[in-house]
C-alpha cells in the first residue's frame, strides 16, 4: 500500500470580497502519495496555486484540515510551521525567488542550516548535522544542477534558467519529504524548461515526492498522477506510468484528451 505524504480533509479557503465571501477552495479532500510525481491542473482562477499554498502551510485555511504524514499541521504555531517548511517541504516558484543579496551557494546553504535543530530534523537524524556537511551537499547539488561555476554569483548575475536550477537545489538541500512546485517553468524558455523538468523528474526517480501546479501540458506529462481542479473542487484524476522520455508525446496526447473531457 502506498503511503500518504500530504493530505487534506474538507479543506476550504475563502477570501472576503466586497462584503461577501469568495470561496476559492470548496471542501477539498485529497491525498498525495509518497514518491509520486503529482500534478494539479485547472483553468485560470480555479484555485490550484491556492491549494498548493494551503497544502504546504504557506497560506492559512478557512476550515478543514491538512496533514503531513498523517499529522495534522493546520493548528501548528508559526515556529513549528517554519520548522516543518524548512525540513520537510521544498518550494519551487514560477520566478526563481532567490534572495537577491545572497550568492547562489548561500541561497542554497541557508535553508540547509536552518532546518537543523528542529523536532522534524531529529526524525531525519540531522539534528546535529555539521555545517560542513550542508556545504558539501550544496556543492553536490550545484554540480547536479550544472551551475557549480556560478556558485559565487548573485542571482542578478546569472540567467533565468540557472537561477531556477539554483532554486530547485535550494528546495532539496534539506532533503525534504516533498517538493512543491508552482508553475516552475512558467517564466522559462524552452531549453531551460526542459532542463528544469528533467531535474524534477530525476529527483522523483530518486524517490522524492513532487507536487506540481501547472497549466502546461508539456510539463504535466512528467506526472504519474494528475488531478483536475475546477471551481475549488477536485473534479478529475488520471494516473499514468512513470515518465519515459520516448513516451512524452503520447502522454501529452493523453493528457490533452483527459483535459478535453474535463472541459478545460
Amino acid at each position: 500500500m502506498r503511503e500518504i505524504i500530504l493530505s487534506s480533509k474538507n479543506l476550504c479557503k475563502s477570501f472576503a470580497n466586497n462584503g461577501g465571501q469568495n470561496h476559492v477552495l470548496d471542501h477539498v479532500t485529497l491525498e498525495i502519495y509518497e514518491k509520486d510525481f503529482t500534478v494539479i491542473m485547472g483553468a485560470s482562477g480555479s484555485g490550484k496555486s491556492t491549494l498548493l499554498y494551503c497544502l504546504s502551510g504557506m497560506d492559512s485555511i478557512t476550515s478543514g484540515a491538512v496533514y503531513y504524514r498523517q499529522q495534522e499541521f493546520s493548528h501548528y504555531s508559526e515556529r513549528e510551521m517554519a520548522a516543518l517548511r524548512a525540513v520537510e517541504f521544498g518550494f519551487v516558484f514560477q520566478q526563481s525567488h532567490l534572495v537577491s543579496h545572497l550568492t547562489l551557494m548561500e541561497n542554497i546553504v541557508v535553508p540547509g542550516y536552518l532546518g537543523r535543530g528542529s523536532k522534524f530534523a531529529s526524525g531525519k537524524g540531522k539534528k546535529k548535522e555539521k555545517a560542513e556537511n550542508v556545504k558539501l551537499r550544496a556543492l553536490e547539488l550545484l554540480e547536479l544542477m550544472n551551475i557549480a561555476d556560478a556558485k559565487d554569483r548573485l542571482p542578478s548575475q546569472v540567467s533565468g534558467g540557472e537561477a531556477q536550477r539554483a532554486a530547485i537545489a535550494r528546495a532539496v538541500i534539506s532533503e525534504p519529504g516533498i517538493i512543491l512546485a508552482d508553475e516552475p517553468t512558467g517564466a522559462l524558455n524552452r531549453k531551460n524548461t526542459e532542463e528544469v523538468l528533467n531535474l524534477l523528474t530525476k529527483l522523483n526517480q530518486q524517490k522524492l515526492s513532487v507536487l506540481m501546479v501547472t497549466h502546461d501540458i508539456h510539463a504535466a506529462a512528467r506526472a504519474d498522477r494528475l488531478l483536475y481542479l475546477d471551481d475549488g473542487r477536485i473534479s478529475g484524476e488520471m494516473t499514468m506510468p512513470k515518465f519515459e522520455p520516448q513516451e512524452a508525446r503520447n502522454r501529452e496526447v493523453q493528457i490533452n484528451a483527459w483535459l478535453s473531457a474535463m472541459e478545460w
Partner: peptide, 16 residues
Amino acid sequence: QQDYGIYKAIGFTSRQ
C-alpha cells in the same frame, strides 16, 4: 517584502 516572503517560505519564523 519579497525577500521576507522567500525567507518565510524556506523556513524562517517572523521572530527570526
